[in-house]
Design a protein around this nucleic acid. Structure first.
Lengths: 197, 197
DNA sequence: TGCATTTGTCAACAGTCGTTGGCATATGAA
DNA sequence: TTCATATGCCAACGACTGTTGACAAATGCA
């Protein structure tokens, strides 16, 4: 077996590694400075490569952003969960997404740019429609799932914004326990119409 | 009494009118497209004037933005309000600020740019510290006013973001009554630690 | 009428941006 | 070795940015 067929089979050519480096740099910079604030030249510098290569690997800045802004929330199925623990489950998953070691900066990228970039805004609306709303619709009346999912999202996106992007000091200072107790109760109310505890 | 002294006394020279036109155009465009998305040339075009004049009247784009991003929430004093109606009072004032005819686009300007512009973010943190937090501190234990005001802000900024900037369809569709009932209850819980009935 | 001040236009500056095409080098198959 | 391909650098393009200084017109007081 020669090198060529080996590379084709294992999918780890040199170009693949460069491609991954560029994407990693892009995700970092888009998350930190937003779509406008992160230039292709910045991304190239962070990937130790020429700016022209960024365009060669990804056809344009828009396409690079689209590849960087991929999000999978991995929300739990609320049907199989104790109905009284839905609020707590959601806020715990939220903290995992934003502070856990496994999840990438996808949501940071999207949220940072969604206020001033139409593409990011549309992508964020898609995350809501495809990942949040169906999960909420699985419990309670599906007819007003939009309303309940919208309320949940307004609270959680607001919390993410204040805690991780705006860095409002008192919100940054909130402990996980405080968040689970306070925000968890509000989410519980939004999703089920009932109170926690 | 000649024109000069009249103008000096009444403060309505031609330059003042031009200045106001520029500021009005800037507030509109900053609110719609954010700090980066609104160029000085755009502002000048909307004010039907040369771009150089924008710099002459306001020394720089930063200073123009600072003048445009002035916010006064006019929050009510919660002490003089029925304790059980605090949540409803807050959400009603929120709707007045964002949808009422009297209030300008100040908060839209700030929120739209705060995710990717450090100055706007700092300005928004100041609004929280100087206008939101003191109001919440007037009821309940002042020691944890930061925590309670932070929770309130996360919910209300999240709602503003989803409803007015991101325009998440189900959140846009929420009626005032639904918002008062659902979000009002959550705010009541955040501020007082008690539930609305 | 003159004249100084205000108000405004125009052209250009230095810089950054996304993007492109040409050319060099390295790689690996024949 | 020979040669095609993959990978990369360099220079430049056209467009846009905030900002500046020189000059023109309008204004209003003497």
């Amino acid at each position: 077996m020669n090198f060529m067929t080996q590379n084709q089979a294992m999918k780890i050519s040199k170009s693949d590694r460069t491609r991954a480096h560029i994407l990693e740099a892009a995700r970092l910079l888009f998350a930190e400075h937003g779509y406008d604030g992160a230039s292709i030249r910045d991304v190239a510098a962070h990937a130790s490569i020429d700016p022209a290569m960024v365009i060669r690997y990804f056809r344009s800045k828009d396409e690079l952003f689209a590849r960087a802004a991929v999000v999978d929330l991995h929300l739990p199925e609320l049907r199989v969960i104790d109905r009284a623990a839905i609020g707590e489950t959601l806020i715990r998953r939220f903290l995992e997404i934003w502070e856990g070691p496994a999840s990438g900066p996808g949501m940071t990228i999207l949220l940072r740019s969604a206020m001033s970039n139409d593409f990011a805004a549309e992508k964020l609306r898609e995350v809501f429609a495809n990942q949040v709303r169906p999960v909420v619709a699985a419990v309670g009346d599906p007819a007003d799932a939009g309303r309940r999912a919208g309320l949940v999202s307004s609270q959680l996106l607001g919390l993410a914004m204040c805690r991780y992007l705006l860095r409002l000091p008192p919100v940054v200072a909130l402990s996980h326990d405080e968040l689970v107790r306070n925000v968890g109760a509000a989410l519980q109310h939004y999703v089920t119409g009932e109170d926690q505890s």
